[in-house]
Each structure stands twice: as C-alpha cells, then as structure tokens.
Amino acid sequence: MKIGTTVNGAARQDEIEDRLLLVHYLRDRCGLTATNVGCDTTSCGACTVLLDGESVKSCTVLAAQVDGREVTTVEGLSADGADPHPVQAAFRQEHGLQCGFCTPGMVMASVSLLRDNPKPTEQEVREGLEGNFCRCTGYHNIVRAVLAAADGVSS
C-alpha cells in the first residue's frame, strides 16, 4: 500500500508492505537507525518516537497507521544539527546514558513527558518513564537528567 508521512519535518511517500512496523519503516526505509528494537512485547520503550508530538512505541504501530501523520525521531530532535535539545544536553551533562541502546527511546519519552509536565517531581519522572527500560544506569542519572532538563527548559 502507499503511505504519505512527514518524518523529522520532511514529507515523503512510500510503497510499503501492509504489515510493516513503524520502527522498521523508520530504520529501513527512512534510514533512521537511531531508534532501536529492544523487545517483542511493547515493554522496553527503546523504539519510542513522537507521533504527532506524543510518545509512542514504534514497534507497536503499523507504518500504515501513520499515513498522513508526522513522526519525530531522535535524529530530528535538534533541527539541522544545531544546538542539542535541552533533554539531549542534560543526558550528556548528567551521564544519563552508558551503552546508548535505550537512549534514543528514553530521550523521546522524556521529551514527551516534559511537554505534558514541564516541572515533574522525581516520582513523576520515574512513573513517566515506567515504559522505558535501561540495564546500564540504574535510572539514577536518567532521572537526574530529566529533572535537570526540566529546570533548564523552564528557566
């Protein structure tokens, strides 16, 4: 089937297999490989991207379902390689990533969380990221990074 999407600001048309998952559309058709697949059960959130500005797990959305809609991946977060987004900057500053595999999804989930709740408490950050797994950081510095980004965003 044919779909038209806007991915990281660029409009495109693609002929796709009906069963194609959004994450594979992004990785294999759009060449955006930052978004990773970490599980089979919508549990880990490594594949999180923004769909019309809201976080979704791209392994559990069909590419067919984003026809006519807008997708943002971590590659599109900071426009044209300009300054990093405050969440990206905070993850670096607070050492909120180690192996980096969960990171694109974690960052996108955090961006979505802060859009809805610009001044979260630590508990709200933890609950807001319950759908994103990380094996390296114990979440400690991820939580600090999101709180730091919130401070930066609002100041």
Partner: peptide
C-alpha cells in the same frame, strides 16, 4: 493502563 506511550495509542 500500561505506560504513557501505550496510553497515547
């Protein structure tokens, strides 16, 4: 229900 991403869909 689920998590934020799941509640968005």
């Amino acid at each position: 229900v689920g998590d934020r991403q799941i509640r968005h869909r």
